[in-house]
């Protein structure tokens, strides 16, 4: 597994901050970069799927452990 280029720690934050923080982080990266997002908001499961569809970024991986959701997103 390739290591992510950046991690967004959105644990404890609720809608819409995990998305906003991820978008801010992704802005600073170049196309193809991998971003790891950690979130605890259960709504983020649906939201990250929707957001990647809207933006064209790819949701590469989505896992969950101990109440923490982990999304791996590749910048389009």
């Amino acid at each position: 597994m390739t290591a992510p280029n950046a991690t967004v720690d959105a644990r404890g934050l609720s809608c819409p901050m995990p998305i906003v923080k991820t978008a801010q982080q992704i802005r600073t990266l170049t196309s193809g970069a991998l971003v790891e997002v950690l979130a605890t908001d259960p709504g983020s499961l649906k939201d990250f799927t929707a957001w990647t569809r809207t933006t064209g970024n790819a949701l590469v991986e989505q896992t969950q452990a101990d109440g923490v959701y982990r999304f791996l997103i590749r910048k389009a």
Partner: peptide
């Protein structure tokens, strides 16, 4: 508004 902008809209 912030979510739309974060979605590139």
């Amino acid at each position: 508004a912030s979510t739309a902008a974060a979605s590139g809209i």
